[in-house]
Structure formats: C-alpha cells, structure tokens
Design a protein around this nucleic acid. Structure first.
Lengths: 331, 331
DNA sequence: CCGTATTTTGTAAGTGCTTACATAACTTCA
DNA sequence: TGAAGTTATGTAAGCACTTACAAAATACGG
C-alpha cells in the first residue's frame, strides 16, 4: 500500500495525495476528505524512508547522554523525550558511557542517522578533544547542550546556575559558623567545575582560604563514598558540614557520619545536589539543590523548536537553581 | 556527496560502491580498498533514508516503556540500548505514560517509523484492550515483552520469576512466625499479579488464609505510601512484616514504621522488590528481590538478534529472581 | 459571456540507495 | 591455448516519496 494505490482509488494523482500528506493548503476540501477517508480505510502509513529521502528529515533528534541508568539523566531523558514527542519529534537515544572516544563515535553515529539535531546531557567536557568535534558536528545540525557551555555558532547552551547555588549553600554554612566544609564531587564536568567555583567563591567572599584537602573526588558509588568520608572524618574531625555534587555522594556521607556515631544535622550537616528521589528516602531527609532539570530540558526543547522555526534565539540561557530544605540542613 | 560521486572518483559503477557499503564479498580487494579510502577522505556517510528505502530497514528498534524517569525502567532502557547498539541497532525511545490509549497510539507511531521490532517493558496489560492490538502489531514486526506474557505468534516474552520470589519471601516470613504480612503494590501489571499470586500461594501452602485487607494498593509515591502504611499499622498493630512490589513502597513503609516508633527488623521486618539503588540508601538497608533486570534485558536483545538471524527461539523464557539480603530482613 | 486571476490538479524529474540480471574479466586445467 | 568455470563489474529497474512547473478547472468582474 503506497501513495500510488491511494491515488488510484481516489482517482487523483500522487501529487495530490502527497499534498494532503504534507498538509498543503492547495487541495480542495472534497478531495482532501476523500483521500483521508481512503487512507483511514486502508490503514495507510506513509513510508518514512521515502519521506526522509524527499524531505531530508524524519523529525528525529539524537539524545546523547552518559548513562540513562543514572537517576538524574533518566529524569532528563524522560522530560526531553516527552517534550520532543509533543512537538512531533522522535528521540533517538544514545548512551555513551564515560569514554570520550566513544562520545566522538556516537556523535558521528547520530549524524549518520541523519538526526535533525542533537541534545547533549551531562557530557564530560574534557576540554580540547571533544569540543572541536562538537564544533564540527554543529556545522551540520544544531546542538543543544544541557549543563555545558561551548561558544559555537550553532550550539545552544542551557545551564543551571549551579555555581551560584553552591555559592549560597556555602555562604549559609559559613554564616552558621561552619568553616571546615567538605566538598565531595564525582565527575569533572562543566557543572562540576561550576560548583567548585561556587564553593571557592564563598570562601574568598568570607575572607577564608579553601583547604584543598576538603575538596575531594569520589567515585559515584555509594560504598566508595561511605568509605572515603569515614576516612576523611577520622582524619579531620573538625569537619562540621558536607556538601556534595550529587545526592548519592551526600547519602554516602550521611551513612559514614551516622556510622561513626555523629548525628545529622546536629554534629554535621549535609547538603546534596540534584534533589533526587534519594533525598526523600534517607533519614533524616536530605536537603538538596534542585537544579531544575525539568526546566532545563523543556527549555532546551523549546529552543530547538524555535531554532527550527527560524526564530533567532539566545545561545546561552541560565536557569536558577533552588535549595530544597529538608532535615539534614536548615537555613 | 553521494554514491555517484564516490563511484566517479573511484572510476567504478555505483553498484560496486554499494557492494562495499554492504560488505558484499564479490568485490576485488584492490577496488574495495580504493573505494574505502575515498569514502574516508570525503567523509562520506551513506544516506540512511535511501538505504532504508532499498533495504526497508534502518536497524532501529522501538523501545516502549511507561516512564524512563522511573529508576527501574531507566536501568532496563540503559541495558537494552547498550545491548542493541553493540549489535548495530539503534533504540527509538518511546515513553507512553500510564494511559492505555496512548499505548496503542505509540505502538502505531513506532510502526509508522518502520522500526524493525518493538521491545516492551513494564506495560500495564489491562487485558482485552491492549492485547489484541499488540497481536496486530506483532503481525508486522516481532514484539519482545519484558515481564509480560502474551501468547501470540511473533511475540517473545522474557519473564522474571517473581511469583516464585514472592512465594519464597512469604514462606520465609511465615516460617519465622509472621502471619500478618502486609503486601503493598502499585500497579496492576503482569508482574504485579504474579507477585500477588506468589503471596497467596505461600499462605495456602501454609494452610493460612489471606486477609484481603493486608493486600493494599498504593500509589507509587513516597509520601502516599508513608501515609497509607501509618494508617494501616495503627489500624492493625498485629502486622509484623511488610513486603512490597517496589522498593519505593518499601521505603515508604520503613519511614512509617520508624516514625511510629517501631524498629526494623526487630518489631517489623520489610522486604522490597527490584533491588534498586534505594535499598542501599536507607538505614537500615533494605532486603530486596533482584529480578535480574539486567539478564531479562540482555536476554531480550539476544532473542531479538536470534529471531533476525532466522533461528527459531522460545516464545517464553523465565529467569529466576534472587533475594538480596540486607538489614531489614534476614533469612 | 469572456478574459483574467486564482485555485486545484497533474506531469515528471529528482532523492540516494539496493539488487537481479547481464556482461566482462580473470582462473584453471586439460 | 582455449573452453568451462569463477569472480568482478556494470546496467537499469526498482523503492515510495516530494515538489517545481505546467496545465486545467474554477471564480470573478465587467
């Protein structure tokens, strides 16, 4: 069943059928209805490949993320997929893992699939390498980067203001008298460096110096973080607050703290990041920064729609993050 | 840059170029290499749409799930996507939400996208409706169902043995003297009914009767489950164990239990399901059934590959689940 | 009622690939 | 060395659409 069969049944040419397929206004209401009826009756679906050949697009967006199994990216992907679908686009999912070489490979793969655009989430921008390749990619299709910044022509960056969020967190902690604030982070991403900047800024704002041994990299893994934090607390008993780049690490810290016999938040208070499901599951519940991944993602898709409809849009949009206060730290 | 340009540069016909594109053995090594070199040099990528037109496939699999934001589905999707990609397939993600009408719509949408097969995860099979439509779909492309069972020709079901897992859990609880065992469930899925069957079976095995007020449906939502379980515990103080269809509900139960002043597992023990990240984050940690979603998913993809390579494979495969013992209940 | 403007429809040339079939170029061995 | 067999290459007909351009049909105004 193809466009010819439909045309024959309707007694028109294939051009007319194609026109109703593409919503052209230049078809008389009568013939349009007749054709639609026949399509309905015959359960006809236009061949997406032929369509793609003609239009050079099948309205498909490549969504590249490190790992959908991660609760945070999962949420992002979910929101993006929904938003795209509401606008008639499909999401071709591509999880790259951490290897940077793969990232390049996967970008090419998406390009080979002739996606109309690429949305990147949580890409570890290890400077030099990736970036030039993304620039190349953006010469072919627009690239939308969530929580990353690259100043290229056809790339659009939607960024959570995590630097400021972390800045405020640490300022609040310092205001409450904490000076030895442990910062746990997992990945060296754009947003990772933003957070460290915020942390540092709060210290310098307060005329304190950052102790480098308080800024600690930990694998994104519960047991590892428990282990590490225990070590640190034993070595530096003066630590009175913990902030983390990720709720999971904060949860690890909480476990370590409790297991060493301290109480939260009385002895040591904890602030997480991402406001994930985990933050409600612990006891005490975890105060955490919501970086508004929902808004970041819908903004990205809206931007995408605008770009395709020819509007000129900003290359960089910043969205304010927001502290969600729970039991592990009160303002 | 298309196949003609490459052919011209190489001084051969497009057929030869196409042959190297498709790995045909009937090309002399010399010309093959020459063509590959030119492709490399020109950064040529075959047009996927034209290819699809000719081959009637672009090796893309529709992955349909209720919601990737859910930690459990996220893991499944992640594994599936990876396994598919390793076999040269892409994953077209489609999250349906809970509405059944949408499910039908989305199946048609995937079909219209000319996917080569459909993998279904966590579909709420509300009998009559969905099923007939899936049967229709399976007449066009093979359908792989994870944790669901439909006895159609071109459908392949990969099922976790959750009935048995729940059966064993409840038997263990009964063996320890628990008779009032609360069962919390969220959705009426295939796996949901399996679990209830297992629960019931353990009671009848033990010559006890199930009290219907102990089998309770709760929205998949932390606060709702905390609230509900508190109510139930106050109404029925004899409850000494809780099992759940989902870790999140179990976590809710744990919160309720603790907030009412009981201790886990001494006063009330708790068993979750899915062995998610949550089960390690709570304190005490949550004993939970691992239904081996990793194996379920890779098995599904392997089956898919086998089906496409013409092997005849089983229509129903069952994978044993496995209890992961933690602090909230010890065997 | 006819000429012009407008709307509707059709013709045919892409779009870039696959592949059956035909042909040409090599092997092999008597 | 040449016939038969094998391997490599080319020709051309799909595949199912889109769309520029041409042509036909209709509407409108005087």
């Amino acid at each position: 069943m193809n466009i010819y069969d439909i045309a024959k049944q309707a007694g028109v040419s294939i051009a007319t059928v194609s026109r109703v397929l593409n919503g052209s206004p230049n078809v008389s209401p009568k013939t349009k209805q007749k054709i639609l009826d026949i399509m309905e009756k015959e359960d006809y679906t236009p061949n997406i490949f032929a369509r793609g050949l003609g239009l050079n697009s099948i309205k498909m967006i490549g969504v590249l993320c490190t790992d959908v199994a991660d609760i945070y990216y999962a949420k992002a992907v979910s929101i993006i997929e929904n938003a795209l679908r509401q606008n008639g686009f499909d999401a071709l999912l591509c999880c790259t893992g951490d290897a940077l070489d793969d990232k390049k490979k996967y970008l090419d793969l998406l390009l080979a699939k002739r996606v109309d655009a690429i949305i990147l989430i949580g890409s570890p921008f290890k400077e030099k390498f990736d970036n030039s390749h993304i620039e190349q990619v953006s010469q072919k299709v627009p690239v939308f980067i969530i929580n990353g910044f690259l100043p290229f022509d056809n790339t659009y960056c939607i960024i959570g203001d995590e630097k400021e969020a972390m800045h405020q967190n640490v300022l609040s902690l310092i205001a409450k008298g904490h000076t030895e604030i442990l910062y746990l982070y997992d990945a060296e991403t754009y947003s990772g460096s933003q957070k460290i900047d915020g942390y540092t800024l709060a210290y310098t704002d307060s005329h304190l110096t950052v102790r480098p041994e308080l800024v600690v990299k930990v694998p994104k893994n519960l047991l590892a973080s428990v282990q590490k934090v225990k070590e640190l607390l034993l070595k530096m008993p003066s630590i009175s607050a913990v902030t983390a780049s990720e709720d999971l690490l904060a949860v690890g810290a909480m476990k370590a703290i409790t297991e060493l016999g301290y109480t939260i938040p009385e002895d040591i208070c904890v602030i997480g990041f991402n406001n994930s499901l985990l933050s409600e599951c612990t006891s005490p519940t975890l105060t955490s920064v919501d970086n508004r991944v929902d808004i970041l993602c819908t903004t990205a898709v809206n931007l995408l729609i605008d770009v395709f409809s020819g509007k000129s849009v900003a290359n960089k949009i910043t969205i304010s993050s927001k502290l969600i206060e729970r039991e592990s730290f009160k303002l």
